Amino acid sequence: MSSTAPPRRTASGSPGFLKRSQPRYGEKAVKVLLVAASLVSVLTTIGIVIALIPPAGEFFSEVGFGEFITGTDWAPLFKPPSFGVLPLVGGTLMVTLIALLVAVPLGLGAAVYLSEYANRRVRKIFKPLLEVLAGIPTVVYGFFALKAITPLLQDVWPAGDGPQIFNALAAGFVMGIMIIPTIASLAEDSMNAVPRALRDGAFALGSSRMQVSTRVVFPAALSGIVAAVVLGISRALGETMIVAIAAGGQPNLSFNPLEGMQTMTAFIAAAGIGDLPTGSTGYQTIFAVGALLFVMTLVMNLLSIRLVRKYREVYE
């Protein structure tokens, strides 16, 4: 006679037969939402490219690309017009460089303090306070630069040599303050992701806290720090209100930050609300400058991705 073995029982006493799991509709819905969010970002970028290419192509069919890139006089609405974009590019890079000189040391210093020196209670208090700066409207930063920073610079500067009412120095300084939370928060998150074992090993070898912070944690989190700095640069390049209010609206190819300058975004904002006839060459300059700014940002992000992959550390 053949006998059938009794079913194996689990610890709870119930038969150990595998049951068919119920469909997880909630999990599928979350997956669909995440895919949709990713597609929105991709489709938005594609839409921007599609919106820029036709008008920019019409512009370059009338204006030579070499004249546009290498010209030093930007006066698209004058008679005769000039389409040299270098004054706008120079103003954009000048303001961005000043902003980075302010934001990178202060942002990374704040990140090192919050990650390596501050205790948990201090971190919970100071990090949200730091991130409050990111929620202040940029128009407020612009008026702060114009009404507070510029007069202060004029007071402390030698008589006759001070900055103009509109200048790149005040705009870049306040823009640097604006992007400090972006760099500090992302860099601090990257430093916190470094395994504790690396710190403990360095302390066991007699390293000081400063040595651990600068020679162990900082190099290990370098990929995330690079990403934080690049995100700050991207935000500085795309900022409009601060430079439109504090830097001025006069294209000026100069290396003197005390003079007024116009950036690419400030020109787009000023020309976009003007009375330019649709389809005219002056109107198409908006899309040409926007396309150039898009290419600059794209190249910078591609370089940052390469750096992040090069210095990325993977821990088990």
Rank of each mutant, 00 (worst) to 15 (best):
I273A: 13
V49F: 10
Y311E: 15
V30S: 13
Y315L: 10
S115K: 03
T240R: 12
K79D: 15
G109Q: 12
G13I: 08
V212R: 11
S190L: 00
P137V: 01
E316P: 13
S280K: 10
L133N: 10
G84C: 05
V174T: 10
M264W: 05
V49Y: 05
R121M: 13
K19G: 14
I286H: 00
F17S: 08
L258C: 10
L237I: 13
V140I: 10
I177M: 12
P105W: 00
Q284A: 09
I286D: 00
G47P: 11
F83R: 06
V289A: 04
T10M: 12
T182W: 08
V95W: 00
V49A: 11
V32Q: 12
G272W: 07
P251R: 08
L130V: 08
A187S: 11
G47F: 02
A111G: 00
G249C: 03
V216P: 06
E116C: 05
V139H: 08
D155Y: 07
I149A: 06
P128I: 06
S115F: 03
G47C: 07
L293D: 00
G238C: 05
W157F: 15
W74E: 04
Y25P: 00
V308M: 12
V132A: 09
G91Q: 06
S207Q: 11
G290R: 09
I69S: 00
I149S: 04
A75P: 04
F218L: 15
R309L: 11
L130P: 03
S213R: 03
W74Q: 08
E259N: 11
G206F: 07
N192T: 03
A103W: 00
A266G: 05
G107R: 01
V194P: 00
V35W: 13
K147M: 15
L101Y: 01
I46A: 13
E316F: 15
A187Q: 03
I233D: 09
L106F: 05
R8K: 15
G176C: 12
I305P: 08
G66S: 09
F218V: 06
V216T: 14
L34H: 05
V299T: 14
I50A: 12
A159E: 15
G290D: 04
A269V: 07
I136Q: 01
Y311R: 06
V308G: 02
P219L: 08
R209C: 01
A103E: 01
D275E: 14
A227C: 03
E131P: 07
S61D: 11
G90T: 12
K310D: 09
T96H: 01
L100H: 01
A148S: 11
E62Y: 02
Q250C: 04
F144W: 12
I268V: 14
G260D: 01
V216I: 15
T92N: 08
I165Q: 14
A110K: 03
V112T: 09
Q154A: 08
L129F: 01
T214W: 14
V104D: 06
V112H: 08
L186T: 01
I69M: 07
G232L: 01
R8L: 15
G279W: 04
V243M: 04
A168L: 02
V139E: 00
A118T: 06
S185R: 02
L146I: 04
E131F: 09
L237D: 07
M178H: 06
S12K: 11
A111D: 02
V85M: 14
A288Q: 02
D200A: 13
V194K: 02
P23G: 07
V32D: 09
P81G: 06
